[in-house]
Design a protein around this nucleic acid. Structure first.
Lengths: 196, 196
DNA sequence: CAGCTGACAGATATTGAAATCTGTCAGCTG
DNA sequence: CAGCTGACAGATTTCAATATCTGTCAGCTG
């Protein structure tokens, strides 16, 4: 068994946990399952993660961070003027979420449960994202494209106002015909608001 | 027993159901409980409501309609110019929700469960509300205060963009300090967007 | 001796039998 | 005879016994 002879790292445990979550779902995935998948005792898993909750949060963070990275590329794309960058950023966010929810609904539901459990991690993630938005808004203010009092407050407002299109709680609405148009209607309104 | 000698009306059943829901919560409130509260057999309740789900939906509709009425008054208030009316309408909606959630969290949670069950009823309610908003937006376009392509689409966008402040799923966020400022930031952005 | 194991206590989840509920309807009652 | 009752079948929920899981730790192993 080559798998059991490799060093047991946090990384390997996280990968195994993702797989167990994918197979068993959030309600039935246990630490014992993860240990079994790795061919070790569950005590070994506790050497790397203090609690089951910490392990799940680490998996959640990993997952959220993938989205953060994709969006960071858009936020930093100075080839687009600020208005297009805001639109592109949200379009990318919405498309990514909708794609995940549509392609593997069970896995998406699993991560939705994890996100619901991981208050702190999710909060950090939202701060990361509004941080990226703040940068775009600042660029818009600097170029004169946007008229805005406080870029940070406005970034938060943008994020909250688009919740319908990225909050997993609304996932089932994303299948409905017409959502794309609804998304564009909201974006139009918000972008006009940024121009002031 | 004067209560049992009165005619059994849909109205009396609805009132009793509200009371049973308040006392027992959505998970434990049964049709038998409602019948007991009225001093009749549960068969009599089924004479007025075909199923338990229909009874619950009727209670939900009743509850949602109360909000619709309050907002209709604001939507029809031509003493306010359209911009102030939009602001006032959403401020009233947010204040009403936040007040209910804060004053009796258990009852609010009960109704949140009912709302989650009653797809059709909730959809109609949202149509009522966006209808009111459409009227305000139309008035704004007519007076030249707003620049908007399609008032109906824009009304829907306004409603979706403010979901954070009226969707019961976000109720726990409404206690956080700073929400009022967040609400105003979103409203500022949206109203600026309406002006175009 | 660093890292892993496996037995353990208390907490949580599963299971299946018993109780309760939903929805129907034949018949009672005023 | 319009409206209510209460017994009933099948679905769902409750409950308590049983099994599994979480988190710890003394001691084993390479």
């Amino acid at each position: 068994m080559p798998a059991t002879t490799e060093t047991l790292t946090a990384e390997r445990i996280l990968a195994a946990t993702e797989e167990v979550l994918r197979r068993h779902g959030p309600a039935k995935a246990t630490v014992v399952d993860v240990a079994r998948a790795l061919g070790v005792s569950h005590g070994s898993v506790y050497r790397h993660f203090r609690t089951k909750a910490a392990l799940r949060e680490a998996v959640t963070k990993r997952w959220l961070d993938r989205t953060t990275e994709v969006l960071a590329a858009v936020a930093a794309d100075t080839g687009l003027d600020p208005e297009d960058r805001v639109r592109e950023w949200f379009a990318t966010l919405f498309a990514a979420k909708r794609r995940k929810a549509g392609l593997d609904p069970e896995l998406f539901a699993t991560y939705t449960v994890l996100v619901g459990e991981s208050g702190e991690v999710v909060n950090d993630h939202i701060c990361d994202l509004t941080g990226q938005l703040t940068d775009i808004v600042r660029a818009g203010v600097a170029s004169g494209a946007f008229t805005v009092d406080d870029p940070e407050t406005t970034a938060r407002a943008l994020f909250q106002a688009t919740g319908f299109f990225h909050d997993p709680g609304y996932a089932k609405e994303w299948e409905r015909p017409g959502v794309q148009e609804e998304f564009e209607a909201v974006m139009d309104l918000l972008v006009k608001g940024l121009r002031g």
